[in-house]
Computed example of a mutant assay.
Amino acid sequence: MPRNGAINRERILATAEHLVIEKGFAATALDEVIEGAGTSKGAFFHHFPTKLDLAKALVDRYVTADLGQLQNALSETAHLAADPRARLLAFLRIFEDGADELMSEQSSCLYVSTVVERDLLTAGTADRIVDAVVGWREPVAGLIRAAVEAHAGHERGDDETNDDGNADGVDADALADHLFVTFEGAFVLCRATGDAGHMRAQLRVLRQLVDHLVR
């Protein structure tokens, strides 16, 4: 492989991601990707023998970056661990404050572009999206449980939880998934209306709802 093979592969993936998000996977021709990446067909097929291979690499790259953003936000708020409510709200605020920059970089989400393609679903390409959902759910639910249990313990003077394992009746897993749902739904709303401001607005509403639950 040429010494710059990794750079060439990354350029192909970056170009393909932009095109797929804008047009959809089925409507994106490989020739468009090759031309946009400024590479040759030989170099392209060296890295991605089939279009399905490209799709799997795209989703894997996107999931890795997505989970990386999650870990960054967890790290940035780790110093607030002694105050679970403050940490949870600060964690959510990171994404709210970054919403405008996010929407300036992309108009939609690769997850949306992937799950609407039946061929990609049947080929298992969306399996990595499930990894992302679970990857977000578990740590975010942990933040929520800590915040709710701290609030409930303060109110009762103990640390009891309800029989269903959720402190104060809050389904932490479902609420954690709601962050993921808010992102994806806001992408659709922004794309449909042409107003990128919906992303920040929806993340703000989610933070306010969570704030009310753990107050």
Score class of each variant (00 low, 15 high):
M1S: 13
P2N: 05
N4H: 11
R9K: 13
E10D: 05
R11H: 11
I12D: 02
L13I: 14
T15A: 10
A16W: 08
A16N: 03
H18M: 14
L19P: 09
V20N: 11
I21N: 03
I21F: 06
E22V: 10
A26T: 05
A27Q: 15
L30A: 03
D31K: 14
E32W: 04
I34H: 10
E35C: 10
G38H: 03
S40E: 02
S40D: 01
S40V: 04
G42K: 03
H46K: 12
F48A: 09
P49C: 00
K56F: 09
K56A: 01
A65Q: 15
D66F: 14
A73S: 13
E76W: 11
T77F: 01
H79C: 08
H79F: 15
L80I: 08
A81I: 09
A82L: 08
D83G: 09
R85D: 06
R85A: 10
A86D: 12
R87F: 08
R87L: 02
R87K: 10
L88E: 00
L88Y: 09
L89N: 00
L89M: 08
A90I: 00
A90W: 05
A90D: 03
F91M: 00
R93N: 12
I94K: 13
I94Q: 13
E96M: 07
D100V: 02
E101G: 15
M103K: 07
S104N: 10
E105G: 15
E105D: 15
E105W: 01
Q106C: 09
S107Q: 13
C109T: 15
V112C: 11
V116F: 00
T122E: 15
A123S: 15
D127F: 07
V130S: 12
A132K: 05
G135H: 13
W136F: 15
E138N: 04
A141W: 02
A141L: 01
A141R: 06
L143Y: 07
I144P: 06
I144H: 05
A147G: 09
A150E: 15
A150K: 10
A152S: 12
A152H: 12
H154C: 03
D159E: 07
N162R: 13
D163A: 13
D163F: 12
G165P: 03
D168C: 01
G169V: 06
V170K: 07
V170A: 06
A174S: 11
L175C: 04
A176G: 01
A176T: 00
T182I: 04
F183Q: 06
E184I: 15
A186V: 10
F187N: 08
G194N: 07
D195E: 14
R200H: 13
R200L: 00
Q202M: 14
Q202L: 14
L206P: 04
L209V: 14
V210I: 10
L213V: 11
V214R: 08
V214T: 13
R215I: 06
